[in-house]
Write a protein that binds this DNA or RNA. Sequence first.
DNA 1: GTGAAAGCGCTAACAA
DNA 2: TTGTTAGCGCTTTCAC
Lengths: 355, 355
Amino acid sequence: MNEPRGSRRQRNAPTISDVAARAGVSPMTVSRVINREGSVRDATRERVEEAIAALRYAPSAAARMLAGGEDFRLGVLHTTTSLFYFSEFLVGCLDQAARQNGQIIVEQCAEGGEVAAIEHLLNGRVDGLLLPPPLGDAETVLAMLRERDVPVVAVSTGRAPEWALSVSIDDRKAAYEMTRHLGALGHRRIGFVTGAANQSATGERLAGYRDAVADMALDADDTLIAAGDFGYRSGLDAAERLLDLSDAPTAIFASNDDMAAATVAIAHRRDLDVPGDLTVCGFDDSALATTVWPELTTIRQPVSDMARTAVDLLMREIRQRRAGGSEDHPHVLVEYALIRRQSDAVPRRRPRATG
Amino acid sequence: MNEPRGSRRQRNAPTISDVAARAGVSPMTVSRVINREGSVRDATRERVEEAIAALRYAPSAAARMLAGGEDFRLGVLHTTTSLFYFSEFLVGCLDQAARQNGQIIVEQCAEGGEVAAIEHLLNGRVDGLLLPPPLGDAETVLAMLRERDVPVVAVSTGRAPEWALSVSIDDRKAAYEMTRHLGALGHRRIGFVTGAANQSATGERLAGYRDAVADMALDADDTLIAAGDFGYRSGLDAAERLLDLSDAPTAIFASNDDMAAATVAIAHRRDLDVPGDLTVCGFDDSALATTVWPELTTIRQPVSDMARTAVDLLMREIRQRRAGGSEDHPHVLVEYALIRRQSDAVPRRRPRATG
DNA sequence: GTGAAAGCGCTAACAA
DNA sequence: TTGTTAGCGCTTTCAC
């Protein structure tokens, strides 16, 4: 009758005490084993590990956190643009956050509704924000966040503000490399389709293209540069313009895969074989790159790794701030890769019949 | 010396006790206000609410859960297919889960690695699983899950197993409606591109098409039905076959947007205007539908709402099981919508010159 | 190297 | 209608 009023346990999952009992040690020792603290004798550790395995024990994140573990609420702004990118980004965030007591709050926001969305997120007590493109370049958003002194990571931005954190690839170098690749294949006239004017990656990619054109002494003709906005439709128009040129390019490098896919569509509409008559390549390696046919040669941004890094950086920053510090704001550059698929080839011999 | 050793609080966020102190009530009363339990006098409630606002108090999810609140860990299997779908799906899951102490664990899995992935998820102590397509039709997956007695929701499946939960649209009816729409426009020969054979939605959509063809007495010709597999490339092939027919269709209804986009590409390659010379429509209303040009007339599946519903259903089921019960396994049907965009039109007059 | 005690913030059960 | 008590599962602090 001394039973204090039945336990309130609801889930019948094993607890740290169950493990301790089975291993014949105290809960504290189990805790030490779990957290990889040094001071546990090997024999003890082994017994504990056995018990953990036998019971299929998994620690309760909630209890852990409550007992002094830190926790993090990270907001992700989801704009309607770049849906392809977003999915991969989110998976990376979720994965990394789960490893570190992080919770990801996704806030959808319509164009123009960014400020309201952020307001909402901030009221929900998020500790920091992740900004996938194009938000990392949005002046009003950035200004607001800076004023509020919210920790922020900009992802895939060409040029992130100094006070923020960022994770990107070297857009300029990647575009340079792709352009050189095309040049090495034998293309002299390479068309380029730019991205949206308000994103800094756009400028970087264009600069990379220009560098390579200059370095390899390719045809440097401004009519070879067509303005796009990262949207498929803008790619359609840009490709038309480029292919209408009296001396049309033999290769077109679009600033993203959507516009490259559009270029392929236009080429086909004109009975041009890709890559036989026209080489087309993209940038990002989004789902679209392997959806269309031929599959696109492109620059791979490791989006989900970048997301993981971003979450990591952000948590570090938040932790530092909680501890009072935080002076450095790392801007990390991750590796990209040039992925060759079926959309590039050596140019067909030009009309003036060399051979 | 009676000071038990200073508080261990780490975050300086206000607690329920802070609110209670400020409002001059007990923590329990605050808890009642937060949880909208009836028995609190209005005056008291107001004071508490003021205190909450003043302190910007937000309850700690961890503490709440630990104290007996239920919690849920829901696993989502992420196959490489249908990335467009997945992003929207995930956002819905996350959103709904966040409202109900749910945590979403995403597990990526390669083709053929489903069983291992599930094993991993289950070891991570998930309480239930969400199965986006094509998993809801995968026999081995389903068998394993059933044997283990794991709560499961199949989403967007044509025909979910009785013992599981499901959220779908009425694929057959939707395809029927789209086909009738095409018939009403004046098309008599309507091509159809099927989906992957191993997904039950494929059969449903085809059946809907057939029903409408019969009901409207349209040309019922099996050469008008081309097999696809939901992939873009299969759509390319199917469209070629259909347009190579001596009496080619004036409209092609593809079982998803990817294949519809491929059909548009083939049409353009053959100098056919869409929708002038050929009407094309898709199914799903994925990101692709509004990416390509012309934008696709398609059937909208409200994926993110479906995800929300799925999470809800799953939590309800888990809760019931914890309470010992659970007899009924709801299969909910949500509304779809036929979205008209720019890819459909009245057929051009046929060669035999009617007028 | 290991254990005991206390407390993280909250709510269920009971008492007033 | 409101308050009191105890305990959720874990980790911290201190003692051995």
